[in-house]
Design a protein around this nucleic acid. Sequence first.
DNA 1: AATTAATTTCCGCTCTATGGAATTTTAGCT
DNA 2: AGCTAAAATTCCATAGAGCGGAAATTAATT
Lengths: 295, 295
Amino acid sequence: MAPTVPAAFPSVGKELQWMKYSRGRAGHPGATQAPVPSAGPTRNAMAEDSVRSVERALSLLRCFDLNTEALTLTELSEKLSLAPSTTLRLATVLTAQGFLQRSKVKTYSLGNAVYLLGAVAKSHFKLHNTVLPHMLALRDACKEAVTLYAMEGGYRVVYEHVESLRSMRCVVRVSDRFPLWAGAAGKCLLAYADAETVEEEIAKVRPIAPGTILDPDRFRRELAEIRRNGGRAVSHGEREEGITSTAVPIFCAPDKIAFALTVSAPSSRVDSTGLRSIFELSIQASRDIERLLRP
Amino acid sequence: MAPTVPAAFPSVGKELQWMKYSRGRAGHPGATQAPVPSAGPTRNAMAEDSVRSVERALSLLRCFDLNTEALTLTELSEKLSLAPSTTLRLATVLTAQGFLQRSKVKTYSLGNAVYLLGAVAKSHFKLHNTVLPHMLALRDACKEAVTLYAMEGGYRVVYEHVESLRSMRCVVRVSDRFPLWAGAAGKCLLAYADAETVEEEIAKVRPIAPGTILDPDRFRRELAEIRRNGGRAVSHGEREEGITSTAVPIFCAPDKIAFALTVSAPSSRVDSTGLRSIFELSIQASRDIERLLRP
DNA sequence: AATTAATTTCCGCTCTATGGAATTTTAGCT
DNA sequence: AGCTAAAATTCCATAGAGCGGAAATTAATT
C-alpha cells in the first residue's frame, strides 16, 4: 500500500520512516508539491499500538513545510479531516508546549520548541555531521551543487544540500520535497523500489518541465537501464527546465537504497565528458559515504 | 508557581511559552544543567483542555537535549515518571512517525522528522532571520561572541549565537541552557522578572565558578542596580572562570524583557573602556532589534 | 446593521489510552 | 555455557480521556 521506504543504515541511528498520505487534493497551484498528512478517519484497519491523539498531533505539526508558514484553525482541521473542536484542542496543547505559536491574527505556525529541538537533532545527526564534509568535497571537485535525497512518503526529500559557488546555481533547501517521477534522484531512488511503488509513481506523472518523461514504458525502461548501470541516473530538465543533474545511489545493503546523491548544474555547463567525470567523482563519494554510514 | 516567561514580541510570530519542570533531581554532575520535563502525575489540578497523551509525548521529545543524545526506555520512563508500558507505547508512535529513532541497542534519539521540521521552523523563524544580521554586525564591531538568550523554564536558553573570530573564543550552541543565577544574561533577564522568580533562582545558587555571586543580598542589590542602569549587566567569571560578559535587554514592552543580548570574551581582552564601548554598541543593536521585532 | 464565516465553549457518550502484572528478551556474572 | 537480574515487551480489564456534534461567541465582510 503506502510506499514502503527503504530503511536507511540502521546503524546511523537514523531510520527513515513510512508515512501515509491521503489523496493529493490538488493543492495550491503555486508550490511544486504539497502533500497532506493524513490524520483523519483513514484508520487503516490494523495500526496497532496507536495513540490516536499523539498521531494526530504529530500530523498537525507536519502540516507545516517550507512553503507553509502559517495555517488557520480551519485550514488545519481541513488538512487533517478533523473536527474543528478536536483540532483546536490539539493545537492548544501544542501551543502551550511551544511546539506551535499563535499570531494575533489567529494563525498557527511552528513554535520555538521545534526550532530548539531541531538544533538538538541537528547536532546529534550522524548523517548531517559525517556526510556533509564529503558533500562539500564533491562540490569542490565538481564545482556544482550537491544534494542528498531520501524517499519519504512518496516524495524525495532534501536531507542535505551544498550549493555550488558559481553565480548561477541550482538551490534547494533541506526539507524541500519533490516528485519521485521527475529528475535524476527520483529515478535513482525508484530504480530500487518495488514494482508497486514504481507504478504508483508512474500514475502521478504529469508534465512539469520540457524534459519530463511522460511515457510510462519509456520510464520503466529507463529505470531498468539505471539499475543495470549500478544506479547512475541523469536528468535533462525533467523537473525544471535547463537543469541537468546526475544521481548515484547510496546503499545500506545490496540493492537496498538509502539515499540518492545528486549533482545539479545548468545544462549549459555540462557536456558529455563533464558528465562522465561527475559520475566518477559521485560514485567515489558515494562509496566513501557508504563506508561512513556502515556500523 | 512555575516561573512565568515574559511573552516575546507577539508580533514576531514567536511567543515564548512557559514550561513546567519538576524538582531538579541533581542530574549528572558533568553537564552544566539538565532539567527534567515533567509529564508525570503532577497533574496540577486545573490544566484544562489537556490531551494528556500528547502532552506526554511532547515531554518525551523534550527529554533530549544537546547533552542527551540517546535514552533507553527505562531512562525515559523514569524521567517522565510514566509506566514503562505507557512510555513504550508513546515512544513507538513517535518512532513510527519519525520523530524518534531507535538504534539496534534499543536506545531512542530524536528522529529525522525533528531534523526536517527544525529546518522548516528555522526558515520561517523571524527571530532567526531578522536578528542574526544585527548580531553579526555587533560581533564584527566588538570582535567578540554575541549571544541571544531568553528565559524559559527557569533557565536561560540560547536562541542565537555568533562566534567571535579570534582564535580564543567563547562558544555556546543554540538550545544550550544555563542558570539564570549566574552570568550577565541571567541577571539581565532576572532584573525584569517578578520577585517570586528572583527568589526561586536565588535559592538555586551554588558556586560554579570563582565569580559566582553567592550572597543573596548582594545578588538582589545587583539586580536593582541593573534595573537602574536600563538593564546593563556585567559578569566577571560568574558562570565560567575567565569569561567576562555583558548583557543588555531587548524589550517587547516597557519593562517587559524578551531577550538578553550578550557579548562574551576572555576577561583578559576586556578593559573598562572596552566594556563601555561594548555596552554602547550593544545598546544600539538592542534598539535596532527591538524596532525590528515591533509590528 | 446585517449576514456570514470562523473560532471557541459545552457536554454526554464511546472507545482510547492506561498501568499493573505476566512474559519474553537481553545483558551481566560466575 | 549456564544462571540471574534487569530491561523490554505483551496482554488485558477498566477508568476516564478524548472525541465531535451542536450551540454560542467572536470576527470578518457586505
